[in-house]
């Protein structure tokens, strides 16, 4: 469903993403791991058509993002980093707006909004304006927006960021469940999440893929079977020190 070929992104002199290629099939949950500044968000922004790649291509389903952006985008549900939404709108108003943009109207729209609110436990705050909500609710409102049209592809940039442990647990279960029928890619720097939800892991460092395997296989590569050690071995922190 997602096919990324040799993706590169240059910001001025800085090469943020340096030739990344991977595919995600339906029924797969791909965990996107990497230290801060490794190029995770930039990759996801190119994947969803927000940023134009310097080089390389993105294909969603049968649609090329550069050639048919609207068709490609209609297959994606996207939760951007920091979960932006319109603070002066109510939760249900915001979701109705997003559903309409997705081409849903009338009762179809209301059913979709209702279902998304159920998924994300938003029913109690549906009539509240978003700026009165706690961070967790705001985050889930944006998450709900990504699920409205029952997309075939889900791109989630740090979906569990800012959630409390209970909410994190719920979110992981939701991702796992959604991954049974969709192609899901989500970024995180919480390693236990990879174990809990992913069928495959990509570790990126300084814009390049340094590992692409199942969590079980990756664990075998370390002497004590801990993903954390592998992560530290393979990546450089933004303070510039290589861990050993």
């Amino acid at each position: 469903m997602i096919e990324v070929k040799n993706l590169r992104k240059q910001f001025g002199p800085k090469l943020a993403v340096d030739g990344i290629s991977f595919t995600v099939a339906k029924g797969e949950v791909l965990g996107f791991l990497g230290p801060n500044g490794a190029g995770k968000s930039t990759t996801m922004r190119m994947l969803t058509g927000f940023l134009t790649p310097t080089d390389g291509s993105v294909k969603i389903g049968t649609h090329d993002m550069a050639l048919a952006p609207v068709a490609a985008k209609s297959l994606i549900g996207y939760l951007p980093e920091n979960a932006p939404s319109y603070p002066d709108m109510t939760v249900s108003g915001f979701l109705r707006f997003a559903a309409e943009i997705r081409g849903l109207s009338g009762s179809e729209r209301d059913i979709a909004v209702d279902r998304s609110m159920d998924y994300c436990f938003l029913k109690p705050v549906r009539h509240q304006t978003i700026d009165t909500l706690s961070k967790g609710f705001r985050h889930r409102t944006c998450f709900a927006q990504a699920l409205l049209h029952d997309p075939e592809v889900l791109v989630l940039d740090e979906p569990t960021d800012g959630l409390d442990p209970n909410q994190k647990y719920e979110a992981r279960n939701l991702i796992k469940r959604l991954g049974e029928t969709k192609a899901v890619i989500f970024s995180t720097h919480i390693l236990e999440e990879v174990d809990a939800a992913c069928s495959r892991v990509i570790i990126i460092d300084r814009g390049r893929i340094v590992a692409n395997d199942t969590p079980a296989n990756l664990k075998k590569k370390t002497p004590n079977g801990k993903l954390e050690d592998l992560f530290r071995q393979m990546t450089v922190s933004d303070t510039g020190t290589k861990h050993s």
Binding site: P80, P87, R102
Partner: peptide, 14 residues
């Protein structure tokens, strides 16, 4: 400022 530009530009609209 709100970051909603990213949301808007990744919705299936031109």
């Amino acid at each position: 400022r709100q970051g909603t530009l990213e949301l808007l530009m990744t919705l299936p609209i031109t």
